[in-house]
Amino acid sequence: MADILLILVGAAEEGGHSGPVALGLQDYQWVSLSMLILVGIFIWKKVPGLITGGLDAKIQAIKDQLDEAKSLRAEAEALRDEYAAKLKDAEKHAEAMLANAERDANSILAKAEEDGKLMVERRKRMAEDKIAAAEREAVEGVKAVAVGAAAAAARKLIAEKHDASADKKLADEMIASI
């Protein structure tokens, strides 16, 4: 058995090359042969196709991710533009609301001033009417006092200067005039 082993391993040193020899092939030849067999098995099992298929799948997945990122970016830009337009619209709306509020405030202020003037005028008229009424009352009061004083004075004068003969004469004149 040792002889077979020596034949297989080939411990002979020929040509100045020292190394194991098996079935007449040097070690580097065995390595080359095993590499050829391994490459042959890879080709027979279609490993390059699997590798390229896997790489193609990865490339396609990356392309899909890039396309999705592009669409997301476009969508984000559209949203940004939409919100920018909404912001501008909101600013215009706020300016319009402010202008309306100022206009309404000015209108209310003008109406309040007008109403105030009307109320002052009305109160002034009412005060003037009260003053006029008080004047009329005072004039009537003065007249009443004057009439009362005149009547009292007339009574006193008549009572002092009028006697029975004057009454008879007055009665006769009245009867004659009828």
Rank of each mutant, 00 (worst) to 15 (best):
W30Y: 00
K86C: 02
L50D: 09
G141F: 04
L72K: 15
A127H: 07
A96I: 03
E114L: 11
W44A: 11
G24F: 02
K63R: 13
R123F: 01
E173V: 03
R125G: 01
Q65P: 00
V9W: 12
E140I: 05
A11V: 14
R136Q: 13
W44G: 05
I59S: 10
V31R: 11
R103E: 02
V39C: 10
E135M: 08
N106W: 01
G10N: 04
K63A: 07
S71R: 15
D64T: 10
A146L: 11
D56G: 07
R125P: 02
D56L: 02
L118D: 15
M126D: 14
L5G: 02
E140N: 10
I158D: 09
I62K: 14
W44T: 13
K161G: 09
E121T: 03
V31I: 14
H162N: 13
D3G: 11
Q26E: 09
A154N: 04
V147E: 15
Y83S: 10
A153Q: 06
A61Q: 11
A133D: 12
K156N: 08
L25F: 13
W44V: 05
A134W: 01
V9M: 12
L66D: 12
R125K: 13
V145C: 01
H17S: 06
E91I: 12
H162W: 15
K161D: 10
A134T: 06
I43M: 13
Q29C: 03
S18I: 14
S34F: 04
K168D: 08
K63S: 07
A153Y: 03
I158L: 12
Q26P: 04
E91C: 01
E68F: 04
A134R: 06
G19D: 05
N100W: 02
M126K: 13
D81V: 07
L87P: 07
S71T: 14
T52K: 09
R122G: 04
A166P: 02
L25W: 03
E91A: 07
G54Y: 07
K156E: 15
I43D: 15
S107L: 04
G141D: 00
G53Q: 10
G16E: 05
L25C: 00
L55E: 03
M119F: 05
A2D: 15
S177C: 01
Y83W: 08
L157P: 03
L170G: 03
R73C: 06
A166L: 13
E102H: 02
I178H: 04
E102T: 01
R125L: 08
A12Q: 15
R155Y: 12
M174I: 12
A153M: 08
D104L: 04
N106L: 06
A146R: 12
A69S: 15
L170W: 08
E114A: 12
G141Q: 03
K88I: 05
K45N: 11
A164D: 14
L55S: 07
F42H: 11
A105P: 01
K63N: 11
M97T: 08
A154L: 10
V21D: 05
E102F: 00
G40Q: 03
A176C: 00
F42V: 06
Q29G: 05
G53W: 07
A154D: 08
S71H: 11
K111S: 09
S71G: 05
P20A: 12
I175N: 06
L87E: 14
A171V: 12
A76D: 07
